[in-house]
Design a protein around this nucleic acid. Structure first.
Lengths: 241, 241
DNA sequence: GAGCGTTAATGTCAGAATGACTCTAACGAA
DNA sequence: TTCGTTAGAGTCATTCTGACATTAACGCTC
C-alpha cells in the first residue's frame, strides 16, 4: 500500500476518524433497440482524482456537517450530473477498512430512480456517461462501486411493492405495455401481457384514465395513472412506510 | 439548545465532521407466560452520560478507525452486554442533523439475533435490562432509538426468508411447535399448526432428524434441524446472499 | 390396564391465485 | 376492404391457501 500525495499515510490514517461520503445508484429506463426488451441504464462519472483515476464511479461526494444524509446524496447528485431524481432511498452503508486504498472511507449508498424524460439529460461533460446495466464498460468500476450496483439491482428485484418504483421510472401517465416493459427490465424475463394486466388491475395503486395514447400504428392503448399514498417525498423514509 | 460540558457548542460543531457510531437491536425469544404466545425481547442499557442520562438506549458505541462497521457493532455489543449473537446484519444508517441534541451523530444501526439459551445471560449490571418488545418501559428511549427498534421490527416482519432467522432464535435442533412460536411472535398472530407444518416441510432449508423431544406430557414431537447454506458468518453480508 | 386429556402429525376439501392459452376489438397501412 | 399488429377480455387447468377433520402417541387418573 503506497503513500499518495495529499493523503495521510497508512500509519497516520489509523488514528483519523473515517471520512464520510455518499454515493448513488441512479437508474432509468430506455426503450429496447429494434423490438428488444427495455433496458435499465445509469449515469456514471469518471474519476479525475486519486485513487482509481480514470475509472467510472457512482456519483457522490462528501457529507457536509450541516445537511442530512439524504440531502447530501441529492446535492452531490445535482452537482455532479445535474439530475434531480423523483425517488431517493437509502441502500446500505459500506465501511470495510480496505475499500479505499488511500484512506478509511465510509460510504452511505443511495438508490434513485429517474423517469423517462430525465434519462440522458445530464450536464454536458465528457466525464459523465450513460451505460446500460449490462454494458461491459462498467463491469469494473472504481472502489467497490460495482458491488454497490449489483446490490442495488438485487434489492430492486426483491422489492415486494413494484407499483411505486415502476411509476417513477415512467411519467405521470403510462400504458400498461410500458409498465410491463419496466417489470420485464427489472426481472430480466418476459411476462404474459394478459396475466400482467389481470394482476395489475387487482392492485389498488393503479387506476385507469379516460385518455388513450394516440399516434401509434395500432389500436390505441389506454393510459393509466399511479395513485400512491401522499405527495412524492424527496427521500423515502423507510420508518414511515 | 444549551452547551453541554465536554461537547462543542452549536456554532463550533457545525464545522466538525460527524461522529460515527454503531447501535444494535438484539432480539431473542422467550416462552409465553401461562400458555400465552411467545414474546420477542431485547437487552437495553441505561445511559450514564449526557445526553438523555438515565434513559434506556440500544447497546452501541463509537467506530474505531481500525475495525469494520460489523466488527464495531459486535465489539460494542460484547463490551456493553457480554453478548455474542449468532446473527448480525446491517439495518439502516441514521444521520438526521438533530437526532442528538449535543452533536452531529451518524449511527449505523445493526440487527442481531440470540438463540434461546443466550436470552437473559447478560453481564451482571444494574444498567443492563431485558424487556419484552411491547413493554411500556421502553415506549420511550434515548435519541431516536425507539424508531430504530420499530424499524427493526418492520424489517423482521417483512423478511421473505424466515428459515434462517427463526433457527437462530432457537438452538441447533428444535420442534415444529417451537418454530411456529417464533413465527407467531414475529408476525403477532396465531398460525394454523397443520398448515404451518405443510408449508415448512416444502421448504428445503429444514430437515427432520431421527430424534424426538422426550420428557413432555404428551406425544413426543420430532426434532428438526436447519440446513442453511454454509457456516454461520458473524456478519451476514447482503452482497452475497 | 382402561379410559381420558392433550399434543403431534396426517388428510381432506373448497376457494383463491397463477400460468398458458384463445378470442375479439381497434387502429394504420396496403 | 383486407391484413398485420397490438389492446384487451375471457377460459381452463393447475397450484396454493386457509379451515377443518382425523388418527397417533404420550402422561395421568381411576
Amino acid at each position: 500500500m503506497s503513500s499518495v500525495p495529499g493523503w495521510a499515510n497508512v500509519d497516520e490514517r489509523r488514528n483519523l476518524p473515517p471520512a464520510l461520503a455518499v454515493s448513488t445508484v441512479i437508474l432509468g429506463i430506455r426503450e429496447g433497440k429494434d423490438g428488444g426488451p427495455d433496458k435499465l441504464c445509469l449515469p456514471v462519472v469518471r474519476r479525475i482524482r486519486q485513487p482509481h483515476t480514470g475509472m467510472w464511479a457512482l456519483p457522490g461526494g462528501p457529507v457536509d456537517p450541516r445537511e442530512s444524509l439524504g440531502q447530501a446524496a441529492g446535492r452531490n447528485l445535482d452537482e455532479t450530473t445535474g439530475l434531480r431524481p423523483t425517488y431517493l432511498e437509502q441502500l446500505y452503508t459500506f465501511g470495510d477498512i480496505d475499500r479505499s486504498p488511500t484512506h478509511r472511507l465510509v460510504t452511505i449508498a443511495y438508490f434513485a430512480l429517474l423517469n423517462a424524460d430525465q434519462v440522458g439529460a445530464t450536464v454536458q461533460d465528457d466525464n459523465v456517461a450513460w451505460f446500460d446495466i449490462d454494458d461491459p464498460q462498467i463491469a469494473q468500476m472504481a472502489f467497490d462501486h460495482r458491488e454497490i450496483l449489483d446490490y442495488a439491482m438485487w434489492r430492486l428485484r426483491n422489492k415486494t411493492e413494484y407499483g411505486q418504483i415502476a411509476h417513477r421510472l415512467l411519467g405521470e401517465r403510462f400504458t400498461l405495455a410500458a409498465l410491463r416493459g419496466v417489470y420485464e427490465a427489472i426481472l430480466g424475463r418476459r411476462l404474459d401481457p394478459a396475466n400482467f394486466r389481470r394482476t395489475l388491475k387487482s392492485t389498488a395503486s393503479i387506476e385507469e384514465t379516460d385518455e388513450y395514447l394516440a399516434g401509434g400504428q395500432h389500436r390505441p392503448p389506454r393510459l393509466y395513472r399511479y395513485v400512491g399514498h401522499g405527495p412524492d417525498p424527496l427521500e423515502v423514509d423507510p420508518l414511515h412506510d
